[in-house]
Computed example of a mutant assay.
Amino acid sequence: MDFQTNYITPDIKLACYSDKPFKAEALFDDHMLIWIIAGGAKIIQADEMYAFQAGDIFLIPRNQLSSVIIYPKDGQPHKSVAMHLPERRLRKFYEGITPAAPTVVSHKIRYFEQHPLLKSCFASLIPYFEVEEKFPENIASLKIQEAISILRVIDPGIDGILANFDEPGKIDLPGFMEKNYMFNMPMQKFSYLTGRSLSTFNRDFKKHYHVTPQRWLTQKRLELAHYQIREKRRKPVEVYLEVGFEDLSHFSLAFKKQFGYPPTNLVNHSARS
């Protein structure tokens, strides 16, 4: 796997990847502003799937479960610049600023297409990745402030995300799990996002579902894969990453154990239909 990441500061990085599609489950502690330079990316969240290509710029809000799949495209390796917008920088930015009046806040990904102001901000970073000199912290702060300022100009609702420093509160556990079971995250992350300690999460989960979280998650992911292959006529190689498995062979073994036949049987059945 040819995956290279070059940091000019802990908050600004350039990623290059030239192998087969690579998937990672993510729960970002910071908002992430990303510019795809080349290649492609697919991001799957509870309610939606997003596909991005070269030139696209988007913001992933913090504390949102996501499956991130990156891949080469059109003969070009995946290449992207990511800028963290951490709480410490946002609090400093909003000192003395009155955020816009709050509206209904959506935590879905914000898509900015190829907005020229954001593109210019990102493009100005590229030379810093090509020199060995240390990137000065004051310039990093200015670049991140520039990005935040641009976001506030082009997206009137962005303050509802960037100026919101609340931590997740206790929420309905079954409702959350039914929407997010396809994300292959540690149980500690699931418990955090539902506003519970790990022990309380496990206790509440078993009280409602009468099985362990891991057993329930595996079953739900396999049921989703079965539906995608049989009803949507997709191939196992197309769905195993999206439903929460990391390895195709492990997925096939688990599928056969659950349903009594391998997923290829469904593919052959669909082909005959």
Rank of each mutant, 00 (worst) to 15 (best):
K119E: 13
L224D: 00
L266S: 13
F205N: 01
A225F: 02
K170V: 06
P168A: 05
D204G: 05
E146H: 05
M187D: 09
M177S: 11
R88A: 13
E132V: 00
F205C: 01
I126S: 15
P213N: 05
D172T: 06
T103P: 08
P186S: 02
F3M: 15
C16P: 05
N63E: 13
S18P: 02
N164Y: 02
Y240D: 09
D19N: 12
L142F: 09
K23L: 05
D29Q: 08
N164W: 03
A163W: 09
L85I: 09
S66R: 04
V131Y: 00
I150Y: 00
W216Y: 07
A147Y: 00
S67N: 12
N180D: 03
H115C: 11
V131I: 08
P10V: 00
Q219N: 13
E48Y: 00
M32G: 01
I12A: 09
F259G: 14
S106G: 11
P61Q: 14
G169Q: 13
R233N: 06
G157Y: 15
F52L: 02
A24N: 15
F183Q: 09
F176E: 01
E87Q: 10
H78Y: 11
N138E: 08
G175W: 00
P262M: 07
Y261M: 14
K134D: 10
Q145S: 08
K79H: 05
Y240H: 13
T264H: 09
L193F: 03
A225G: 08
F176D: 05
P262Y: 05
L248F: 12
F122E: 10
I44S: 09
H208Y: 08
D204V: 01
A82D: 02
E133W: 02
P213F: 04
P10Y: 02
F251Y: 12
K108Y: 02
F112T: 10
V243Q: 15
L198Y: 10
T264C: 01
Q214M: 03
E246P: 10
A41Y: 02
A41L: 07
L266R: 13
R272Y: 10
E130S: 13
P136C: 10
L173Q: 04
H78I: 00
L27H: 05
K23E: 03
H31M: 12
S80C: 06
F112G: 08
E242R: 09
H78L: 07
N164A: 00
I150K: 03
E231T: 11
E178C: 04
V243A: 12
S141W: 03
V68Y: 06
L248P: 12
L222H: 14
S270Q: 13
N268R: 10
F28N: 09
K206W: 13
H78Q: 07
Q258N: 15
Y17P: 01
R62P: 01
K92I: 08
K257A: 11
I60Y: 03
